[in-house]
Measured scan of single mutants.
Amino acid sequence: MPSETPQAEVGPTGCPHRSGPHSAKGSLEKGSPEDKEAKEPLWIRPDAPSRCTWQLGRPASESPHHHTAPAKSPKILPDILKKIGDTPMVRINKIGKKFGLKCELLAKCEFFNAGGSVKDRISLRMIEDAERDGTLKPGDTIIEPTSGNTGIGLALAAAVRGYRCIIVMPEKMSSEKVDVLRALGAEIVRTPTNARFDSPESHVGVAWRLKNEIPNSHILDQYRNASNPLAHYDTTADEILQQCDGKLDMLVASVGTGGTITGIARKLKEKCPGCRIIGVDPEGSILAEPEELNQTEQTTYEVEGIGYDFIPTVLDRTVVDKWFKSNDEEAFTFARMLIAQEGLLCGGSAGSTVAVAVKAAQELQEGQRCVVILPDSVRNYMTKFLSDRWMLQKGFLKEEDLTEKKPWWWHLRVQELGLSAPLTVLPTITCGHTIEILREKGFDQAPVVDEAGVILGMVTLGNMLSSLLAGKVQPSDQVGKVIYKQFKQIRLTDTLGRLSHILEMDHFALVV
């Protein structure tokens, strides 16, 4: 994948999101292997301009796509893939009243899908469409860049269908997702969380590099694949309309690839034109409109599966009536509230959605109805927002919020430890010299600072030695090549209790 991002070429006709291997024109390309080798690009942008032909009021008969309808489940399912879809609609009884809503608040519980998330729908649909058009064949390999849930859905379907599955996901995604993927037989590649989507090191860039190296491999490409919004247009939206008897006044959905909100909203605009569509985008993402909503100094966020630093091709923002931004604290607070007060075992993005819903639905009156999409299960986040310690460490809970008995030293300040200034190293000294210094002084790690004293990161003896043994660096290389740029900081005025929580999850903390 090139470091400079080429513009994806656009073909003359058809839909841009065809499933299957992508040609340089962004659509299915038939021909000899030699032709494909000559024409197939190194990668295709996940934010390529959409060429979708959908228009409100256009006859369904003019759609270029294969459409399906929700099917009634048999008493005995032939395999677990038949437990994807037909998820329950559940009334939220307490939270709406707590925040003064007059309307009825309903939750579409997508964590009841077989793999635990709304992404099971698009995973199965992308595979079925690729099999139907002859792209996927027995023994082929599926590769997908994902925040985890699409990966789980694909790995689940691949396990049943017999495909090899490789999932490329950023490091910030939970260990629970990784464990589930491994249990399903998927191979996992992790990428830096802070890598831009168009960087060769991003999950998108690495996935395309693997595709170019592995024979008979395919990126189904949830960011561009029409099967993504079509899955929701054909099934999720129809289920909502049936469950609500066609009567709903507002739908609120958090947005990642945009397939969920695009597919549902398009069908609702056709069948229930008075329904307002509300999009939820986390602070630090750029999906919301108008652009002024996205202006923030924050560039990272903890909530998973929603928000991006690019506009995915499948996201149709014209069908969203209003956007709201959400933050991590309210997302996790509301997710825990949904679990504790409503018994809905949902993930953090569901918290984002409901946090926005109780604001947006203030305009609705008694007798009206708001539906929220709860995308995934708490299963993926047992060591994250479900953990009091994690919430404390991230600053989303305060010590006084917890009532468990603490040891005698818990409320003492870090400054009472009488710490001395640490050994520091410059980023320009060599790895070999740094190892000598650390061994001589008896230290395992040291902060790396520039000549102005600005902290650049941390270097550890173990990481340097393993990097040297693996051949990633040489003793003569500058130590700046092996620094940890993500590390926890703590102030002298913070409590030892807070430091204790940090050290339970990290090997060190830097006192500043």
Results as ranks from 00 to 15, higher is better:
residue 263 G to S: 04
residue 180 V to Y: 05
residue 145 P to M: 02
residue 241 L to I: 02
residue 38 A to G: 11
residue 99 F to E: 11
residue 10 V to R: 09
residue 46 P to Y: 02
residue 246 G to F: 02
residue 12 P to V: 07
residue 161 R to C: 10
residue 7 Q to S: 06
residue 98 K to G: 12
residue 104 E to P: 05
residue 263 G to T: 08
residue 240 I to W: 05
residue 105 L to D: 02
residue 95 I to L: 02
residue 193 T to Y: 08
residue 49 P to G: 04
residue 184 L to F: 05
residue 222 Q to L: 05
residue 275 C to P: 06
residue 26 G to Q: 04
residue 274 G to M: 15
residue 11 G to P: 02
residue 205 G to L: 02
residue 10 V to M: 12
residue 52 C to S: 15
residue 218 H to C: 12
residue 3 S to R: 13
residue 143 I to A: 04
residue 228 N to C: 02
residue 190 R to V: 08
residue 243 Q to A: 08
residue 66 H to P: 08
residue 131 E to M: 02
residue 213 E to V: 10
residue 10 V to N: 15
residue 247 K to L: 09
residue 71 A to C: 02
residue 9 E to I: 02
residue 67 H to C: 09
residue 209 R to F: 06
residue 23 S to T: 02
residue 146 T to D: 02
residue 101 L to I: 02
residue 37 E to D: 10
residue 8 A to M: 02
residue 220 L to N: 02
residue 221 D to H: 06
residue 83 K to I: 02
residue 218 H to A: 02
residue 220 L to M: 02
residue 28 L to V: 14
residue 218 H to Y: 09
residue 165 C to G: 09
residue 158 A to C: 02
residue 130 A to Q: 02
residue 147 S to H: 02
residue 199 S to G: 02
residue 186 A to W: 02
residue 218 H to N: 07
residue 90 V to I: 05
residue 255 V to D: 02
residue 99 F to V: 05
residue 74 P to G: 08
residue 91 R to L: 06
residue 146 T to G: 04
residue 3 S to C: 10
residue 9 E to L: 06
residue 5 T to D: 02
residue 120 D to A: 11
residue 164 R to V: 07
residue 142 I to M: 09
residue 250 M to G: 02
residue 91 R to H: 02
residue 159 A to R: 11
residue 175 S to H: 02
residue 141 T to S: 09
residue 160 V to M: 08
residue 92 I to L: 05
residue 67 H to F: 12
residue 173 M to R: 05
residue 262 T to C: 09
residue 153 G to R: 02
residue 10 V to I: 13
residue 76 I to R: 02
residue 39 K to M: 14
residue 146 T to A: 05
residue 225 N to I: 02
residue 42 L to H: 08
residue 257 T to D: 02
residue 17 H to S: 08
residue 63 S to L: 02
residue 82 K to I: 08
residue 125 R to P: 11
residue 227 S to C: 08
residue 37 E to T: 05
residue 142 I to A: 05
residue 181 L to F: 02
residue 102 K to G: 02
residue 153 G to A: 02
residue 176 E to H: 02
residue 67 H to A: 08
residue 210 L to H: 04
residue 195 A to P: 07
residue 140 D to P: 02
residue 139 G to H: 12
residue 121 R to H: 02
residue 210 L to E: 02
residue 6 P to R: 02
residue 154 L to P: 05
residue 159 A to D: 02
residue 58 R to Y: 02
residue 22 H to G: 04
residue 271 K to T: 12
residue 62 E to P: 14
residue 254 S to R: 02
residue 18 R to F: 08
residue 143 I to Q: 02
residue 73 S to D: 02
residue 7 Q to G: 08
residue 10 V to S: 13
residue 203 H to D: 05
residue 260 T to W: 02
residue 176 E to G: 07
residue 175 S to T: 15
residue 268 L to V: 06
residue 175 S to N: 10
residue 195 A to C: 14
residue 231 A to F: 02
residue 243 Q to S: 05
residue 175 S to I: 12
residue 229 P to H: 02
residue 61 S to A: 11
residue 211 K to Y: 06
residue 196 R to I: 09
residue 44 I to Q: 13
residue 205 G to S: 08
residue 12 P to Y: 09
residue 240 I to H: 13
residue 261 I to F: 02
residue 95 I to A: 05
residue 272 C to F: 11
residue 4 E to T: 05
residue 251 L to A: 09
residue 45 R to D: 04
residue 16 P to T: 08
residue 221 D to S: 02
residue 241 L to H: 02
residue 146 T to I: 02
residue 88 P to H: 09
residue 162 G to D: 12
residue 9 E to W: 02
residue 159 A to I: 05
residue 175 S to Y: 11
residue 45 R to C: 02
